[in-house]
Design a protein around this nucleic acid. Structure first.
Lengths: 187, 187
DNA sequence: GTGGAACCGGAGAGACTCTCCGCTTTGCTC
DNA sequence: GAGCAAAGCGGAGAGTCTCTCCGGTTCCAC
């Protein structure tokens, strides 16, 4: 592990400008916004963009991680605010709203999961941590089956979101079915 | 509705060659196989490919429809072979294996659903028809909740597949949860 | 203030999608 | 089977996007 020297002030500024522009562009044009266009919006040259984010996937992953961190943090707060079962359901709903708001970003990210991008692996860790506590508590309160694992929940939610990207009005309904499938049979 | 004159013999041959090459290329390189490469594999010029399939999406959709028709037909056969509950489960599993075998094609197709491609709308109709009967029978036999609709099933299966594309070993497990969620509470 | 490392930006190489059009093939007519 | 119009072919190339390279500029430690 090499010592990461901090970025120079102008470099950090530019990196931030690119991130902001990228988030806007991805939200607006879906995952196929052109990188040169993002650079233009950010007011930097393409070279600068590519130095900070070697390729489209890196940029996408970085934007995604930023969002994920926010979500994880909110999850922690939910846990303090609500009783276990409620907190769990709220978190799912929140996940949902987020991915819905990002039309297409989710799909793009999913496509990259296979590439083993380190940033995305990190994202996964963050999410697993965020859901872990919520899940354990919901299980202890008898709301959720004991054999359900964090990864199951993440993937199911992700799946429902992906599958309803083109029909958001079905999302709640499908999420309901999935939640029922996670409850103990005797509940 | 204009009278569709049949393709000339050589045109039909070429169209078929392109379809075969496209299926191979998409399976092999994911949805981002280049069209010029597909044309080369098929032994035709790019112009020919583009005359038959005006753009990447049309080609992808056409390959997909071809597969869908096969799946629907198999669904009909399952219905004759097995009792309702079994047929339903078998069909889900089959859907599954298909989409798994197409690594990425599913994702690509899903991304296009928003574009309202006529071919994909048609695909949807075919699938809905195929699952309709299986579902109704499973519901009549008390295996599945009455308020579940064909679209719910299609999307849930699709969602699970998409979400497990990078972890196929979880697919069965998650499909199990989802199926549980579709069963009547008292079952 | 100055030296040099870090960083910038844009020209341009390479790849891909898709179009245009002169030439070839097909299949109908006699 | 010869002739002919329509249908189809294929490849050169225009337009666009990704990503690289490097001469010039900016920052910061001293």
């Amino acid at each position: 592990m090499t010592t990461e020297r901090p970025l120079r002030a102008d470099a950090r500024r530019n990196r931030e400008k690119v991130m902001v522009a990228a988030r806007a562009a991805f939200t607006e044009h879906g995952e196929k916004a052109t990188l040169d266009d993002i650079a233009r919006r950010a007011g930097v040259g393409p070279g600068t963009l590519y130095r900070h984010f070697p390729d489209r996937e890196t940029l996408l992953a970085e934007v995604y991680r930023n969002d994920i961190e926010v979500l994880a943090e909110r999850g922690r707060r939910l846990q303090e605010q609500f009783p276990p079962s409620r907190a769990f359901a709220e978190w799912l709903r929140m996940q949902f709203d987020y991915i819905k708001s990002k039309r297409g970003l989710g799909t793009a990210v999913k496509q990259m999961l296979g590439t083993g991008s380190p940033t995305l692996v990190e994202c996964k860790g963050i999410m697993r941590g965020a859901i872990g506590d919520l899940l354990v508590r919901a299980q202890e309160s008898g709301e959720i089956r004991k054999d359900v694992e964090p990864d199951d929940v993440l993937r199911l939610v992700h799946g429902v979101v992906l599958a309803t990207e083109t029909a958001p009005e079905m999302a709640d309904r499908l999420l309901g079915f999935v939640l029922d499938g996670l409850r103990p049979p005797s509940a």
